[in-house]
Design a protein around this nucleic acid. Structure first.
Length: 423
RNA sequence: CGGGGUAUAGUGCAACGGCAGCACGAGUCUUUUGGGAAGAUUUAAUCUCGGUUCGAAUCCGAGUACCCCGACCA
């Protein structure tokens, strides 16, 4: 795409109120715009990254047997009353329809919708298990939206719900999801800093699991067992206190008490719901013996905006963002200097023809310094420069945003460089 | 929801109770082109409501919004 047509342009300074790196950089570079606290627009660059993340997640969900659906955000009060959560879910957005005077909620999660949905059809053991997921906007009336896009009041979430005939089957799928989530975070470029974390399991199982990414922008405290590579959420572990009902004594894998405290952000969560939602909605199936039994459920969530923000938090320097190739808005940022638009336009066309995603800085009224600064800020993995200097040798300069490595290459080599390490 | 902070042009900053300025941005013209270029010129702002005062961006009160800390977060 032509940068001269990119909306909006970058900004030299971040809004003074924003403290978190993700908000400062993503706003300055034109990836997102804040409408109000915790509510953001994804601008063209941000939307491209969001779609990349979405595709990584969708691919993994489908690999795990997930089938995509789309449920409504607008939800009737009755469903929430059945589970008691109309009163107890304290970040539930509730309002009254102006005309019909019915009470409604904006969905913060979809157990109340998907459980009765699954129950509308007579299920037999032959139908189980099945897995439904969606990628959709969620609404939570947060008492305190914060840290840019890390905790929003409206945000995009992937939520998958699994339906099983028995707990063993749920357990198996739960393990599968663990592996699946690991793949997602690896692919999204935050695998190294993301840990499977034991968390409170509610009343139905000992633990649930979260995926926590180490970052100072996080809002949770976790304790890392460096030996096992797992972590424990501070909600179930306090290093100095004695073991109690809710607390565990040490690493759940090896028992070690030698744990390292870190600040982290929860980027994903997997949870065994068992019959918590199938019961109130009468979600049952008929087993081999003709007996009706409760369907066993699990749920598995990932916040896409939070994941995007986390990637920015842990991949940036003082000049801007450094996107992992898998989620970068473009593969190459092509800059033309000195008005050599004819030659550079050719290279742009050639790259495009090869299916390479290129952001082409074709601006004739921007100085070289401005183009370099913008390239660093936007953070596309490879920056290719065409100027008098490079053209004199019939070459293009290519710079790796992450390593800073600069090479002079011909067009073929350029093509190779920007595609080689792609998956 | 408790505590703290902030609110002036698109963005970032000034202005003793006395003519609202600067920089960047944006528009026009000229020059310039390897790390946010130069000149000329134009454009655009005091969060809302009330009070004090001859006079309020400035003082007082209320409200709203945003940011931060905490609580909360299947």
């Amino acid at each position: 795409m032509l940068q001269s047509k990119l909306f909006p342009r970058t900004q030299k300074e971040a809004p003074k109120d924003e403290v978190s790196a993700n908000a400062r950089l993503l706003i300055r570079a034109g990836f997102i715009d804040k409408l109000m606290a915790g509510v953001y627009t994804y601008l063209p660059l941000g939307f491209r990254v969001l779609k990349k993340i979405e595709n990584i997640i969708r691919e993994e969900m489908e690999k795990a047997g997930g089938v995509e659906i789309l449920m409504p955000s607008l939800q009737p009060k009755e469903n929430w009353e059945k589970t008691g959560r109309w009163e107890t879910y304290d970040s539930l957005f509730k309002f009254v329809s102006y005309y019909s005077k019915t009470e409604l909620a904006l969905g913060p999660t979809h157990e109340e919708i998907i459980s009765p949905l699954a129950g509308k059809f007579n299920l037999s053991y032959k139908n189980l298990p099945f897995y439904l997921f969606q990628i959709q906007n969620k609404f939570r009336d947060e008492k305190r939206a914060k840290s840019g896009i890390m905790r929003g009041r409206e945000f995009i979430m992937k939520d998958l719900y699994s339906f099983h005939a028995g707990e063993n089957d749920l357990d198996d799928y739960y393990e599968k999801m663990k592996a699946c989530y690991k793949n997602i975070f690896d692919k999204a470029g935050i695998g190294e800093k993301t840990y499977l974390t034991f968390a409170s399991g509610g009343s139905f199982s000992k633990y649930s699991h979260e995926f926590q990414t180490i970052t100072d922008a996080g809002e949770d405290i976790i304790y890392l067992c460096e030996k096992c590579g797992v972590a424990i959420n501070s909600e179930i572990f306090q290093p100095a206190t004695l073991t109690s009902d809710v607390n565990v004594a040490g690493c759940p894998e090896c028992g070690s008490k030698n744990l390292v405290e870190k600040k982290a952000i929860e980027v994903g969560n997997i949870f065994k719901l068992k019959t918590k939602y199938s019961e109130p909605f009468g979600l049952k199936f008929t087993d081999e013996n003709g007996e009706e039994k409760d369907v066993i459920m699990g749920c598995y969530g990932i916040g896409l905006g939070r994941l995007l923000g986390t990637i920015a938090e842990i991949n940036h320097d003082d000049k801007g963002i450094i996107w992992p190739e898998s989620v970068a808005p473009f593969a190459v940022h092509l800059l033309v200097l000195g008005g050599l638009t004819a030659k550079c336009g050719e290279i742009y066309e050639n790259l495009q023809k090869r299916g390479i995603e290129v952001l082409y800085d074709d601006r004739e009224d921007a100085s070289p310094g401005e183009k370099f600064a913008d390239a660093d800020l936007i953070g596309i993995p490879y920056r290719a420069v065409v100027s008098e200097k490079t053209l004199a040798q019939g070459k293009v300069e290519i710079k790796n945003r992450k390593t800073g490595e600069i090479k002079l290459v011909n067009e073929k080599e350029l093509l190779k460089a920007v595609t080689s390490s792609d998956d």
